[in-house]
């Protein structure tokens, strides 16, 4: 083949030569690389669901979801404590992070000078880089003691998890919301201001509604991140598998339970953790689907 490609330039033909095989090979190699992601997604689904299957079959998915007792030593795998724990921690985190994050995004996109924004923006990107275990560590040494001295109890609580998570998801909410606000045409601002609206009215009545799809996507992605977070949450929530509605109580999350128990779990207990992982996986895939849908719809309408 090498010989051929050296000779080709001298032959005066426009017809296909065997050298074209190399292009075909490259094409196929690249295609294979592109399908690795699909293969990975398939294998992840197969192995997580597959390992959790025995427990799903034995107890029935509904009983698992609605069961309130998680005692692995008695082979009792009710997952409601982890489900409600995950839900509460996530909602708490969003309640803190969304107003702060969107406020910050408005500040960067609409109010601050370009200089200030250019200075602050890299800081946010850097904060997205802080490893979750570092946040967990800070939670343990600073936040938990603070909660303990303020509210009593151990300090290890769903609230601690919410606060740590809120800080972790802030950067992505700020980034995506600000990008969306900045992408809005300048005409919107001019049109509204020219009608005699104040800057705030313009932001509140024109810009924020127009940016809604982007902000919604940022919240959904943040939600996915919060639901799946393991280390930081596991280190501060106390990991008590009891159904509770009180944010100050200790609690457990799905990801946190897997992280804490996988190293000593065997047989059915191990399968139960994979079943928990399967539920987590399903929730995340649903959120991914919604986020992708909102993104593509937003693109079409623009």
């Amino acid at each position: 083949m090498k010989k051929n490609s050296v000779e080709t330039p001298s032959t005066h033909t426009i017809h296909k030569d065997p050298g074209a095989r190399k292009e075909k090979t490259i094409h196929i190699v690249l295609l294979l690389a592109a399908t690795v992601s699909l293969l990975a997604l398939f294998l992840i689904t197969a192995f997580v669901v597959g390992e959790g299957w025995p427990v799903m079959v034995k107890h029935g998915p509904l009983n698992l979801i609605l069961g309130t007792d998680w005692t692995p030593s008695r082979l009792s795998f009710g997952m409601l404590p982890q489900l409600t724990g995950t839900l509460l921690v996530t909602l708490g985190a969003l309640l803190i992070a969304v107003p702060l994050g969107v406020g910050c995004a408005i500040f960067l996109a609409e109010l601050s000078s370009e200089k200030v924004a250019n200075l602050l923006r890299p800081c946010i990107s850097l904060l997205a880089a802080v490893p979750s275990v570092v946040y967990g560590f800070l939670g343990v040494i600073a936040l938990v003691p603070l909660l303990r001295s303020t509210f009593g109890g151990s300090g290890y609580s769903l609230l601690a998890g919410s606060i740590v998570l809120a800080i972790m998801i802030l950067p992505s909410i700020i980034n995506i919301s600000e990008d969306t606000l900045r992408a809005l045409p300048i005409d919107y601002r001019e049109a509204s201001l020219a009608l005699g609206s104040t800057r705030w009215q313009t932001i509140w009545r024109v810009l924020l509604p127009a940016a809604r799809p982007g902000i919604v996507v940022s919240i959904i992605l943040a939600m996915g991140r919060a639901i799946g977070e393991t280390m930081a949450v596991m280190m501060v929530t106390g990991n008590r598998a009891k159904v509770t509605g009180a944010l100050l109580d200790p609690g457990a999350t799905m990801a946190g339970t897997i992280g804490l128990e996988w190293s000593y779990a065997a047989d059915e207990h191990s399968s139960a953790l994979f079943a928990l992982g399967t539920f987590l996986f399903i929730v995340i895939m649903l959120l991914n689907g919604v986020a992708q849908l909102v993104t593509s719809r937003g693109r079409v309408s623009q």
């Binding site: 080709t8 330039p9 033909t13 426009i14 017809h15 074209a20």
Partner: peptide, 19 residues
């Protein structure tokens, strides 16, 4: 191009574009 149809299926666009 000199008698050959450049849209024939056995034509390779690479040498064609060189010419």
């Amino acid at each position: 191009l000199e008698g050959s149809n450049i849209y024939d299926p056995d034509v390779d666009v690479v040498p064609l574009r060189k010419k």
